[in-house]
């Protein structure tokens, strides 16, 4: 066909295709703008925090407690509190989360209960964090008032409980002095860590399951072919192979726990703690609560500058943890 001779239909088509391509280009530009907006806001946020807080990031942040003078105020107790609570959260949530993941991936029969557990884990990961704080307050902080002086449990069994805010039952497990147990857990770091455990457990379970599921069944079958038991296959094959993936998910969940403020406020963490904790039953504060406390103060030095400096410390901690997680994944992940 001669290219000079264009039929009318083709003419209309060509005119339209120009329009359609234009539309496509405009659409593409809109999409690029949409994604750039998100990245731009991230950059603005980091720059804003850096400009406002950077000059205030001095050693007193790490060495001092909160003070009436902004130049001297720091968040030593909050940093220590965050580290201990996060460590405890890891200790509590690792066995439970990985155990649940192993059960669901390796043992769980296909029945209604398993389906229900799956649905439930997914739904729990969508529950607002503040609700976990209220659960922690009732279950760990107050234990539904079971150990208050006038509860039915105390009066029936004649339990020797103390009055007052630090009251309840204090005893040594197996009479070992350092295995002290306080009931209820009150506003201690144990209560905070258990609350955080409930909060991150769904995420830990989901990410551990993904790590375990990535292992091909041929590995398991090779183990069974040698005549071993199920737990032997799990403990010598499944867990070691999936451990980098499990740890990556674990670290990412813990870094979420470090930034969480609301559940611990509800659970009863303090804002002003002018001492370092001596035991896990002491009262505590954490970095985000200290930052929140500074934000609510009227003076700009606290509200803008000191809070900004605190945020830099927290973000650096989070980036370090995430860096470790990415490193673990890239270095040890096995591709099948």
């Amino acid at each position: 066909m001669n290219s000079d001779q264009i039929t009318e239909r083709e003419f209309v088509y060509r005119e339209k295709i120009e329009l359609r391509k234009k539309l496509g280009q405009i659409f593409y530009l809109t999409l690029v703008l949409a994604i750039l907006f998100g990245l731009f806001m991230l950059a603005v946020l980091l720059i804003d925090v850096g400009i406002e807080g950077g000059p205030w990031l001095k050693s007193q942040i790490f060495t001092n407690y909160h003070s009436r003078f902004p130049e001297e105020a720091g968040m030593k107790s909050a940093i220590v509190g965050s580290l201990i609570v996060t460590l405890l959260t890891g200790l509590f949530s690792f066995p439970i989360g990985v155990g649940a993941a192993i059960y669901l991936e390796e043992y769980a029969p296909k029945n209604k209960l398993t389906d229900f557990i799956n649905l439930n884990v997914n739904n729990l990961s969508g529950v607002p964090s503040i609700v976990f704080g209220m659960l922690g307050l009732m279950v760990f902080g107050r234990m539904f008032g079971l150990f208050s002086p006038n509860s039915w449990l105390v009066s029936t069994f004649n339990i020797p409980v103390n009055d007052g805010s630090s009251g309840g039952l204090i005893f040594n497990l197996f009479t070992i002095p350092w295995l002290e147990i306080h009931l209820p857990f009150g506003r201690s770091m144990v209560a905070g860590a258990l609350t955080m455990t409930l909060l991150i457990l769904p995420v830990v379970i989901i990410s551990s399951r993904e790590a375990i599921r990535a292992i091909p069944s041929s590995i398991r079958e090779a183990g069974y072919a040698l005549g071993t038991t199920k737990w032997h296959v799990i403990s010598t094959l499944i867990l070691p192979i999936s451990m980098p993936g499990i740890l990556t998910g674990m670290i990412l969940s813990l870094s979420r726990a470090i930034g969480e403020t609301a559940p611990l406020i509800i659970m009863g963490a303090f804002t002003y703690v002018p001492f370092l904790p001596e035991s896990i039953w002491d009262k505590f504060t954490v970095i985000p609560i200290q930052i929140y406390n500074w934000i609510t103060l009227p003076q700009a030095d606290y509200r803008i500058h000191l809070a900004g400096a605190g945020i830099i410390v927290m973000l650096v901690l989070l980036f370090l943890l995430n860096g470790i997680a990415v490193f673990l994944r890239n270095k040890f992940e096995v591709k099948w």
Partner: peptide, 16 residues
């Protein structure tokens, strides 16, 4: 953006 703690967003709202 999803991993930044929410208290930081509160700060960002007030300061920027």
């Amino acid at each position: 953006l999803a991993g930044v703690p929410t208290v930081v967003y509160g700060y960002f709202a007030l300061s920027f």
